[in-house]
Amino acid sequence: MEQILSRQQASEAVQDHGWRYLLGTLQTSALVGTLAQAVSVAADAVAVCGDDADRHLRIDVRLDRVVFTLQSLDHAAVTTRDVELARRISATVGKPGLLPEAGTGTGTPRSVQLVEIAIDALNIAGIRPFWKAVLGYTDEAGAEGAEDPLVDPLRQGPAIWFQQMDLARPQRNRIHLDISVPHDEAPRRIEAALAAGGRLVSATRAPAFWVLADREGNEVCVTTWQGRDN
């Protein structure tokens, strides 16, 4: 029987197979040399997933890589079935895994990640319809409340979520990015950002998230699945 997994359960179940848990999904990528090769690798993954492909697997096919994402559409979460499919795909396409030394500045491509946009608001229910309309977004599966996140129905753009404000903060940016990275890659990403002129604003919620800022105070969060409720 298909069961929903906690963040830690999902991460531990696939880490040795070259996948990482990111924002309720499992992801990995395979490097390829041509678009034809990318399409072939994608087709192999679909074939090995069989009838489950349509309800669990998303594939981003590019000239130089193929990115695989697994999540149960019925549960909007990672399940035992997703773990099984991840292991099948790894065995079929040669355990693509995460790209080595991603984000170290050595010229190697970065590994998998997901980006969200966070909007600070005093009245979330009042502004959410605007963002839903102007972006052409829709409700996240299973989340249709007046303050719930919004997602791109084509999964091309970043998800939008709303952070409740108690008081207006006119001297601070009201929209910031959340960069969700593999838990074992976060320290390298933060180190690179600091070396590039950033500063650490807060690490009190690490490893769930670190708050960084550029030289002018614009903030961004580097996030992982760790340090959150299971």
Rank of each mutant, 00 (worst) to 15 (best):
E2M: 15
E2D: 15
E2A: 13
Q3F: 11
I4V: 15
S6V: 01
R7Y: 13
Q9F: 00
A10N: 01
S11I: 00
S11K: 07
A13W: 10
D16G: 04
H17I: 00
G18D: 05
T25Y: 04
L26F: 09
Q27K: 08
Q27T: 11
T34W: 06
T34G: 07
T34H: 06
L35G: 05
V39P: 00
S40P: 00
D44F: 03
A45D: 03
V46F: 14
G50F: 02
R58Q: 10
R58H: 10
R58I: 01
R62S: 11
D64A: 07
R65T: 11
T69I: 08
L73S: 13
D74H: 04
D74T: 04
V78G: 05
T79D: 02
V83I: 07
E84M: 11
R88A: 08
R88L: 14
S90V: 01
A91V: 03
K95D: 14
E101Q: 14
L114E: 14
L122D: 04
I124G: 05
A125Q: 10
G126S: 13
I127G: 05
P129Y: 02
W131V: 01
A133V: 01
A133H: 03
L135A: 14
Y137L: 02
D139T: 02
E140V: 10
A141D: 12
G142L: 02
A143W: 13
E147M: 08
D148G: 05
D148K: 00
P153T: 03
Q156N: 05
Q156H: 05
G157A: 15
P158T: 02
I160Y: 03
A168Y: 08
A168H: 12
D178K: 06
V181P: 09
H183S: 11
E185H: 12
A186R: 10
E191M: 05
A192V: 04
A193K: 05
L194K: 09
A196S: 13
A196G: 11
S202V: 06
T204F: 01
P207Y: 02
A208Q: 09
A213T: 03
G217Y: 06
N218K: 05
C221P: 02
C221T: 11
V222M: 10
